[in-house]
Amino acid sequence: MTQVVLRMEAVRKSYGPTVVLRDVDLEVPQHTVTALIGASGSGKSTLLRCANLLEEVDDGAIFLDGEEITDPRADQNAVRRRIGVVFQAYNLFPHMTVLDNITLAPRRVHRMSRAQAEEQARELLARLGLADKAGEYPDRLSGGQQQRVAIVRALAGRPRLLLLDEITAALDPELVGEVLSVVRDLKEQGMTMVIATHEMGFARDVADQVCFLDGGVVLERGAPQEVFGAPREERTRRFLRRIVEAGRL
């Protein structure tokens, strides 16, 4: 039987009078990939930020490995140690080399020795084809390279769950492929992931479960074949038609 890594129950989040997430339920089993799709402003990023406790939910609850992380008594830092996040804008620290970016959390948070942290970092970099970039500063790398470094940085904490927030949205089309192939590899290795994305073809290939968000509500959820092939909701159909017209699927 599979274990559920992340579970959301009736999550609600609003900024002032704007309700961004409304009654969102979600279950992410171990070793599976969940893709969040939907127009900009539909709540995909907010959902990920809530899961990582970067935002406080107004109502509902979020569970990581069955433990409620939205409980005010939960140790937020301990929760974040078990979740890796990759942001749309990379968010690498510009004043540190690639190697220092990656080893910061293992050394300061996980109390790994410098040698051990660097060995692990170099191994991960090599696996993502970045072995020669360890000593570089982020601003000297291409967008695709920076984003792969950001993925390595997220992986270096050995997370239970990886959250990817539109990680290819800021990349040139020819650089998108190298980042997505890294994500495919991670899936092969059994990493549990939640991915907010505009890359529909990628979502269809890689996801085990697709959630279509619209106005802060999970309007449709299911296997990619169902959501993309035979959407039940009219709004999903309209969204997918727009995507097809834009040549993105």
Partner: peptide, 17 residues
């Protein structure tokens, strides 16, 4: 609470929190 127009009622969980 934000003035939501969707008939939202805070849950017991939220009140406890």
């Amino acid at each position: 609470l934000p003035s939501a127009d969707d008939g939202y009622q805070p849950s017991a969980r939220r009140l406890e929190r």
